[in-house]
């Protein structure tokens, strides 16, 4: 008989690569992404009894990852306001020695970097993770209209950013 715990873990294992991708698109930083994922898994294992069988484990996890990340951002912002007003989130990619991807990839990364958190989460859930609007709105705890407007503004901002970068290089 498979135990409930083993089933839950197997379910997480199956979606792990996608959860990692989501963490990565939120944090834009490999080490941050894996820390975030690790924290989320710890929390999920601890709260596995709160997960309702028959509902979507991926949405449950996306929401958990999103909440932990938002808390982290808030904590960082507080720290940054106290100590180093200019440093919050800046140049994270540039200092990363593994950050040697193609210019195109860097552009996307940089453009994602400029989005407000709300818009980035919407873009990540729908564009990267392929969630439906309805599922994404549920994960974000917002009405559909809010989701679609964040999504539209986020994509427009990405588009503007990429055009700017294009212009700067030309």
């Amino acid at each position: 008989m498979p135990t409930k715990d083993a089933e839950f873990r197997a379910g997480l294992m199956e979606i792990l690569p996608r959860l990692r991708r989501f963490s990565r698109s939120l944090t834009r930083h490999e080490a941050d992404a894996d820390d975030l994922l690790q924290t989320a898994l710890e929390r999920a294992l601890k709260r596995s009894d709160q997960f309702q069988a028959g509902t979507r484990l991926d949405s449950w996890m996306y929401r958990m990852i999103k909440n932990i990340w938002i808390d982290e951002i808030r904590a960082r912002t507080r720290r940054a306001q106290t100590f180093a007003p200019e440093e919050a989130g800046e140049g994270m990619g540039a200092e990363d020695p593994t950050f040697d991807r193609q210019i195109r990839a860097m552009s996307i990364e940089r453009a994602m970097d400029t989005l407000p958190e709300d818009q980035r989460i919407a873009v990540s859930l729908v564009l990267v993770e392929g969630l439906s609007y309805k599922e994404a709105a549920k994960v974000m705890d917002v009405p559909m209209g809010t989701l679609t407007s964040r999504l539209a503004r986020g994509r427009q901002a990405l588009s503007d950013q990429l055009a700017d970068q294009e212009g700067a290089r030309a």
């Binding site: 873990r9 997480l12 294992m13 792990l16 690569p17 996608r18 990692r20 991708r21 990565r24 698109s25 894996d34 994922l37 690790q38 898994l41 710890e42 294992l45 990839a105 996307i108 990364e109 994602m112 873009v123 564009l127 990267v128 392929g130 990405l158």
Partner: peptide
């Protein structure tokens, strides 16, 4: 955007994370 992030879901998950499960 989609293809930029696609390789992450195809890469092996680091040991420390897989081992948690």
């Amino acid at each position: 955007v989609k293809s930029h992030y696609a390789p992450i879901a195809n890469a092996p998950v680091p040991d420390r994370i897989a081992e948690m499960l």
